[in-house]
Design a binder for these strands. Structure first.
Lengths: 231, 231
DNA sequence: AGATTAACGCGAGCAACTTCGCGTTAATCG
DNA sequence: CGATTAACGCGAAGTTGCTCGCGTTAATCT
């Protein structure tokens, strides 16, 4: 048919619809701050937001989708700096990220988004697209730096920004410890040093002091169909 | 009581018990390789392994616990190299990690473990402890390098190894793209350059070419109780 | 080898989660 | 401002996921 009936909220986005949306997303955010993804259920969101359970299922279908929408709602949590020098920008951005993830609320959100992406393919692509876009935007800092002659021209801007963000996500998701200011400082210093050394350059040039030999390039996964045995 | 009846598998670990355990863990691993965490249900594991559903619930209680045990079962997937020089070791280890996560099976496992940790506190501490231990073990490479005079004495070994691992987890969990050999190469180069520049040094020394000013140290999270609004 | 009982297989029963139908409220448009 | 109907509230029905009790199999110890 011509008019495909999609989920509620599309044809009458104003007034009440927008109000319940806000109430629900706020409730999800608070719930994540309180008990994290573990205690995030449709039931609890319904109670906290005052929106009926059936409405939640009708509009969002699952907690994964809820978390997913909260992510896109959080668009610009970390502003992009412009200090005039690349190391200054890297430092400012790292501290911005550090401050952002210093809060329980945002740390819980990231954890939830990754967990949601692990179960819901749609959430997975949403997550990927979201960070793709942020990476390209933040890459502008690096491009400015290259234009100023602070880095080699063949430096990959997105690779630099990925390197700047990675330690924070490692800290949150893997090491599972609070994000401290020291991490921001250390990361900014590290990325700047690495970028200057040409670690993110696309050419085959290699900085002095780095081993030159070509191997080992890994080709195929050694997949034997069974999990590794414990020792 | 004196003898606290814990979960099955403790008092009679041999023979059949061990056999079902193997069958189940293999099934979980295969299921993760096939459809990822999204399709990992107790039901499917039961079917694939041939172990009855009730047995799964009795011994493991949930998929989160299953994934958790699979992680500890995978103890040593990446061997620690000893090439004689720190940059050589970093490069070898990075390629080892890269090869390990080049396979769908292991990438799915990491995703699953993080997702499980987001829901189950016990899985969360298991994950943290697991990587804590790996970090300390791998830190030995750095300690050897320091002893050889390749790095400043006040370099934090665990920080270096965290920096070496972080980009891979970023790639898997956030960027959601396959892990390629180029990432290993770039990461090894970057960490080596950063470590030499003193980015992971605990002292207050700062390498040349890095801005010196102290701010901005972030103090408190700006927590207003509501999610950020979209732009 | 024989006795003991942990661990398993099986199906029924219970609980939590998800959906449905219907009446009510309030955006949106003429 | 009045008509139309999208979105919501409500309770019940349907579905899935999880647990329990009992009989059977096979580790473990003597």
């Amino acid at each position: 048919m011509t008019t495909a009936h999609q989920a509620p909220g599309e044809t009458r986005p104003g007034g009440r619809t927008a109000r319940t949306r806000r109430a629900v997303l706020t409730a999800v955010s608070e719930e994540l701050a309180d008990g994290g993804f573990a205690t995030l259920t449709m039931e609890r969101v319904a109670q906290r937001s005052g929106v009926h359970l059936a409405t939640l299922y009708r509009r969002w279908r699952s907690v994964d989708k809820l978390v997913c929408e909260l992510l896109t709602d959080m668009s610009s949590g970390v502003p992009l700096p412009d200090t005039g020098t690349l190391p200054g920008d890297l430092r400012a951005l790292a501290h911005g990220i550090g401050r952002f993830y210093g809060a329980d609320r945002t740390r819980g959100l990231i954890e939830a988004v990754v967990a949601a992406a692990a179960r819901d393919p749609q959430a997975a692509t949403a997550l990927r697209d979201f960070f793709d876009e942020r990476l390209v935007l933040a890459g502008e800092l690096v491009r400015r730096g290259i234009a100023r002659g602070e880095l080699p021209a063949d430096t990959d801007p997105e690779a630099v920004m990925a390197a700047l963000g990675a330690p924070f996500y490692y800290r949150i998701l893997i090491a599972r410890r609070p994000v401290e200011p020291g991490l921001a400082e250390s990361t900014a210093t590290a990325v700047w040093a690495a970028a200057r050394a040409g670690a993110y350059a696309t050419g085959d040039r290699r900085p002095a002091g780095t081993p030159e030999r070509t191997g080992p390039e890994h080709d195929g996964p050694d997949d034997d169909g069974a999990p590794g045995r414990g020792d």
